[in-house]
Design a protein around this nucleic acid. Structure first.
Length: 644
RNA sequence: CGGGGCGUAGCGCAGCUUGGUAGCGCACCACUUUGGGGUAGUGGGGGUCGCAGGUUCAAAUCCUGUCGCUCCGACCA
C-alpha cells in the first residue's frame, strides 16, 4: 500500500455555532434510509428535483472523500486539472454526440448565449479533454498521461432519485488517460483498478469490482465498483470463491440443462398441432400439459429504433425457462446494424400502443400474440393500413429523419433455445401450439447468441460446481478502456516511434464522489442514525457536556476540547444548553465516530468514551482520552475498518 | 414521455366528501420547570391553503387550466 498523508480537513467547532438543524420526522421526499438520514441530520437540503445544497457537515465529508481520491490518484502519477463546465456545441458535434445528448431524451442541459452560440453544461468531459490532448500531445515521448478532475457534473436525468444517488447536479471525479498503444492503456487501467480498491477501502466502504457492460460510452473492457447495499439499483452476481463478479447486465453463466421433450421431434420437425385456448403464457402451458418450461421456445416481438430513422422488427427466441437480458440484446442488435444506421436508440415491445405512438405504417392484426413461433412469417409485416399510392413510411417529425420500417424480421435466438433438438412453440395462430418442432423442421438456422439473463443460482462458467449469488449494489465507480473511439472522432493524434501519426489510445475512469458519500451512509447506519467511517466523518470526535449548568463539566469539557483540537483531532464540542438526551440523540444521528461524555464523573476527572459504531462504552480518566483517541482515530483515518 | 400519488407554517400532517373568518404535533421565541437518552407547563410569533381563471353572497373545500414535487419503467458516477 502506498503511504498517504492522513486526511485532515481541520478546524474544530462548537455545536452551538454549527448551524445544526436536525429533524425529528422523516421528510416525505425521502424514500431510502440514507436519504432520510442525510436530510434529518442536516447534511443536505433539496433545492429542486435532483439538485441539493451540500450543508457544512456534508461539505466536510465530500472534502475528505475528495482528499482520499486525490491522494490515490496522485500516487499513480495522475495529474489534477479543472476543465470547463460550459462546453461549446461544436465540440460535441465533432464527436457526433451533440444531437443524441440534447434532442428528445438527451441528458445534457444546453443553452444558447446572447450571440446565438449553443453551449452544453458538461455531463462528462471526453470531448473537452480529447480536444486538449489533441493540442498538447504531439509525441509518444509525452505518453502515457492521465488527467483527472473533481468537479460538478450536470445531467438532466430522466428521473432523479434517492437524494444524492441520482442527482441532476453531482460531484464526480473523472480521469482520462492517453496512450501510445493498447498495452500502455491496459497498464493504466490496471493501476486505476488498484487505486480504486484502495480509495473505497480507505473510505471504509465494502465495495466489489464487477465486470460491466460498457454501454453508451463505448470501448472494450469495463469494470464497475459496487458498494453493496439493499437499496442499490443494480443487481450483481458473484461466485462464492470470489473468482467471478459481474453486473447482471453483463453476467454469463451455464444455463440449467433442458428437460428433453418426450417423443423428440414430430411430423418431421414441423411439430404436431396442440389446441391451447387461453394458454398464452409459459405457466399456463406447463400446468395444462405437464411441460417443463425448458421444453418451450418463447418468442418475443420487439422493435429496434435507430438514429437514421430505421425501424427494425425483431423476433427473439428464448428457452421458456430463461429471461431476456435487454443489454445483451441491444449489443447484439447494435453489432449487426449500428455501423450502417447510427446509434441504437431503443428496443421496445412491438405493441399496438407503440405502432400508434410511433405512427408506424403497420397493422398488427395478423399477429397472434401469445402464440408466436420462431418461424413467424415476414408477411405479417406486409400490411400497410396507411398505404395509398405506395406511401412508404410514417410521418416524420420536423428535424428528425423520416421513419423507414423494415418489413422483415431480424431473427435472433439465445443459445439455450437454439440448442434444443425438439421443442414446443407457438403455432402462429390463436389458441394453438406445436409440439415436437425442431429448427430444421421449421427451416430455420439460428445463430446461437448469448441473450439470456444470468440468474442467482446458475452454475458458473469458470467452475460448474460454483453457483452465482446475487446482491444489490450502488455503482460508485466505473473504469473503461475506451480505445480510439473519441481520439479518432476528434482527430487526437500523436507521432509514434516510427514517425507515423496515429490516434491516441484512451481510458476513462469515474468515481461518483457525492454518490459515494450517500452510499457510505446506506452501508453504515443503525436505528439511531449514521455511523460514519472515521476517514470520511465530518468530525472525528464529539465532546458532549451533559449538563452545561455544571461548571465542573463545562470546564473539563472545554479543556478536553482544547487538548484534542491541539492534538490535531477534528473535534465538535456540544455546548448547547440542551438536555443530555437531546445531545446524545443528535450525536448519534449525525454519526460522529467517537463521543466523549463529560458528565457526573467530571468532578472526579472521569469521562465516558463511546464508539458510535457498536456503542461500546468505557469510563476513563480525562487525562487518558487524548492518547486513546489519537490511537483509534489514527487507525480509522487510514481506512482501518470503522474505527472500532 | 407513459402510468399512480401529493401540494395547507421550517418539518410531519388533519381539514376538502357535505363551501361559511385556517387547525394539530414537532421546530422557533419568552418565562418557569427539568437536568445522563428528543422533560413538563404557560404565553407568543409565523400560512396570499402551489399558481391562474371560473362558479357562488361566500372557495383550502366545487369546476377548468397550469406549475411543482414524488413513486413505478428506459439513462448513468
Amino acid at each position: 500500500m502506498i503511504a498517504s498523508a492522513p486526511v485532515f480537513v481541520g478546524a474544530s467547532m462548537r455545536v452551538s455555532r454549527l448551524l445544526l438543524v436536525t429533524l425529528r420526522d422523516d421528510p416525505a421526499e425521502a424514500e431510502i434510509t440514507s436519504h432520510k438520514l442525510l436530510l434529518r441530520a442536516g447534511y443536505i437540503r433539496r433545492i429542486s428535483s435532483g439538485i441539493y445544497a451540500y450543508l457544512p457537515l456534508l461539505w466536510r465529508v465530500l472534502q475528505k472523500i475528495s482528499t482520499i481520491v486525490r491522494q490515490e490518484m496522485d500516487a499513480t502519477g495522475a495529474l489534477e486539472t479543472l476543465l470547463p463546465q460550459l462546453q461549446p456545441a461544436d465540440l460535441w458535434q465533432r464527436s457526433g454526440r451533440w444531437a443524441g445528448y440534447t434532442d428528445g431524451e438527451g441528458i445534457m442541459f444546453h443553452l444558447t448565449d446572447r450571440q446565438g452560440r449553443e453551449l452544453g453544461l458538461g455531463p462528462t468531459h471526453e470531448e473537452v479533454i480529447t480536444t486538449l490532448a489533441a493540442e498538447l500531445l504531439r509525441s509518444y515521448r509525452q505518453l502515457p498521461v492521465n488527467l483527472y478532475q473533481i468537479q460538478t457534473k450536470f445531467r438532466d436525468e430522466i428521473r432523479p432519485r434517492f437524494g444524492l444517488m441520482r442527482g441532476r447536479e453531482f460531484i464526480m471525479k473523472d480521469a482520462y488517460s492517453f496512450h501510445a498503444d493498447e498495452d500502455s492503456l491496459r497498464q493504466t487501467y490496471a493501476a486505476m483498478d488498484q487505486a480504486y480498491r484502495r480509495i473505497f477501502q480507505r473510505c471504509g466502504l465494502r465495495a466489489v469490482a464487477v465486470e460491466a457492460d460498457s454501454g453508451a460510452i463505448g470501448g472494450s473492457a469495463s469494470q464497475e465498483f459496487m458498494v453493496t447495499a439493499e437499496a442499490g439499483e443494480d443487481l450483481i452476481l458473484t461466485s462464492a470463491d470470489g473468482c467471478y463478479a459481474a453486473n447482471q447486465e453483463r453476467a454469463v453463466s451455464l444455463p440449467p440443462a433442458a428437460v428433453p421433450l418426450p417423443g423428440g421431434s414430430r411430423a418431421a420437425g414441423a411439430g404436431e398441432q396442440l389446441s391451447t385456448p387461453n394458454q398464452s403464457t409459459i405457466e399456463q402451458l406447463c400446468s395444462a400439459h405437464g411441460f417443463d418450461a425448458s421444453q418451450l421456445v418463447k418468442v418475443l416481438l420487439l422493435l429496434a429504433r435507430f438514429a437514421d430513422g430505421l425501424r427494425q422488427p425483431l423476433l427473439v427466441s428464448l428457452r421458456g425457462d430463461q429471461q431476456l437480458n435487454e443489454v445483451k440484446l441491444a449489443n447484439a442488435v447494435s453489432a449487426q446494424l449500428a455501423t450502417e444506421h447510427g446509434a441504437l436508440l431503443s428496443i421496445d415491445p412491438l405493441t399496438a400502443d407503440l405502432v400508434r405512438s410511433e405512427k408506424l405504417p403497420l397493422d398488427l392484426g395478423a399477429i397472434s400474440f401469445g402464440y408466436l413461433g420462431p418461424d413467424l412469417a415476414d408477411a405479417v409485416l406486409a400490411h400497410d393500413p396507411t398505404s395509398q399510392a405506395g406511401a412508404a413510411g410514417g410521418a416524420a417529425l420536423p428535424g428528425t429523419p423520416p421513419i423507414r420500417l423494415v418489413r422483415s424480421f431480424l431473427r435472433l435466438a439465445d443459445s439455450t433455445a437454439a440448442g434444443l433438438e425438439a421443442f414446443v412453440c407457438g403455432g402462429n395462430a390463436s389458441d394453438s401450439h406445436r409440439v415436437g418442432a425442431s429448427w430444421k423442421g421449421l427451416a430455420l438456422r439460428p445463430e446461437p447468441l448469448d441473450l439470456r439473463a444470468a440468474q442467482s443460482g446458475d452454475r458458473c462458467l469458470h467452475d460448474p460446481d460454483q453457483c452465482l449469488q446475487s446482491a444489490r449494489g450502488i455503482e460508485v465507480g466505473h473504469i473503461f478502456q475506451l480505445g480510439r473511439k473519441y481520439s479518432e472522432a476528434l482527430d487526437a493524434r500523436f507521432t509514434n516511434e516510427s514517425g507515423v501519426d496515429e490516434a491516441l489510445w484512451m481510458g476513462c475512469y469515474g468515481i461518483g464522489v457525492s454518490r459515494l458519500a450517500q452510499a457510505a451512509v446506506e452501508q453504515h447506519h443503525d436505528r439511531d442514525g449514521i455511523c460514519w467511517p472515521v476517514a470520511i466523518a465530518p468530525y472525528e470526535v464529539i465532546v458532549v457536556i451533559a449538563n452545561t449548568q455544571e461548571t465542573v463539566q463545562v470546564e473539563l469539557a472545554e479543556a478536553l476540547y482544547g487538548e484534542l483540537s491541539a492534538a490535531g483531532l477534528e473535534v465538535l464540542l456540544d455546548d448547547r444548553a440542551e438536555r443530555a438526551g437531546v445531545k446524545f440523540k443528535d450525536a448519534d444521528l449525525i454519526g460522529i465516530p467517537w463521543r466523549v461524555v463529560v458528565g457526573r464523573g467530571a468532578a472526579a476527572g472521569q469521562v465516558e468514551l463511546v464508539c458510535r459504531a457498536g456503542g461500546a462504552k468505557r469510563e476513563l480518566d480525562a487525562s487518558a482520552v487524548r492518547e486513546v483517541l489519537e490511537l483509534e482515530i489514527g487507525r480509522g483515518r487510514m481506512g482501518d475498518g470503522l474505527g472500532t
